[in-house]
Write a protein that binds this DNA or RNA. Structure first.
Length: 302
DNA sequence: GATGAGCGG
């Protein structure tokens, strides 16, 4: 036993893998000056593969980038130290040859481009485009409209409020009537997706309909704030954790908008407040990724 | 320790 123990059976396989009946590479000189190289190797699936290449050796300086030619002469190192010069098929991927065409007169190039009919059509389209405010039809963005906060967008006149505001606009100033219109609700102001459809009771509120309250009010009756959340955590994980208590309607994991780094707290909204209560009780103090979660009902807007 | 996100030319 000891006599033959030097040989680890596990190594045998490896040896076989590389050294079994792979025919040696062949080089065939063709009459036209090219060389055909046939190599055998194992591919990723462990199957034998044959590679045939017909190449023409070029030594002319003008044809081969001299710096590339030089690199081919470099001695290899590391695990490739014993390999011959030039690229080896099993360690080298020959990339696509991307040709840059730096231009000294890009202005002229740009002009040429404009002759392209497609580009021209596009330009015409853009030329005709004018900024048109959705509120007052003025030549500014809706967001910059002076009546942004006092008027509903055209075609969405809410009762007499919008008309009143139009009247004010004609007089060139905002007055008490306009202020009243604003009080009725900022229709037309942007509502972020998370807040859309929010209203008393949550369900049944028609989209965009005012529920006697301000816009921007989120239904947080069944929303939990979870703090001490691992920065590695993902929204899906949180959802999975809380879903066992009831239907989770929203998971918000706070992250820095620029860096994307998790800020370590999250909001979980439930469809049913009773589920939220249960989840709050059970999950407060829950160990998650080496941290202990703190779970409480979210404040603000109730 | 922290209470949320943000249109579109």
């Amino acid at each position: 036993m000891a006599a033959q123990a030097k040989h680890d059976w596990a190594d045998d396989d490896d040896l076989d893998e590389v050294s079994t009946d792979l025919p040696p590479p062949q080089k065939i000189q063709n009459k036209d000056g090219t060389t055909t190289i046939i190599e055998y190797r194992y591919n990723d699936e462990g199957q034998k593969a044959k590679t045939t290449r017909r190449i023409r050796y070029i030594t002319h300086r003008e044809v081969v980038n001299p710096r590339v030619a030089e690199r081919k002469q470099w001695a290899k190192f590391g695990q490739s130290a014993k390999d011959g010069l030039g690229p080896a098929h099993d360690t080298t991927t020959v990339g696509e040859n991307i040709i840059f065409k730096p231009s000294t007169n890009w202005r002229k190039d740009a002009r040429d481009e404009s002759k392209d009919p497609n580009a021209q059509a596009m330009k015409d389209k853009l030329k005709d485009k004018k900024v048109k405010c959705r509120i007052c039809n003025g030549e500014h963005f809706t967001a910059r409209c002076p009546y942004k906060d006092t008027m509903a967008p055209i075609g969405e006149a809410a009762g007499g409020a919008a008309d009143a505001a139009v009247g004010m606009g004609d007089e060139g100033g905002a007055g008490p009537a306009a202020t009243g219109a604003a009080g009725a609700g900022k229709k037309g102001s942007y509502v972020p997706p998370a807040l859309r459809g929010a209203g008393a009771g949550g369900a049944g509120a028609g989209a965009g309909e005012r529920m006697g309250g301000k816009y921007g009010e989120r239904d947080d009756l069944a929303t939990l704030r979870v703090t001490n959340v691992s920065e590695m955590a993902e929204e899906n994980e949180l959802r999975d954790m809380f879903e066992r208590f009831g239907r989770v309607t929203r998971v918000f994991l706070a992250k820095d908008r620029d860096t994307g780094m998790a800020k370590g707290f999250a909001f979980i909204s439930f469809a049913d407040r009773g589920d939220a209560v249960k989840a709050c009780e059970k999950m407060d103090g829950f160990g998650f990724r080496h941290l202990i979660l703190r779970v409480e009902f979210a404040k603000k807007a109730q």
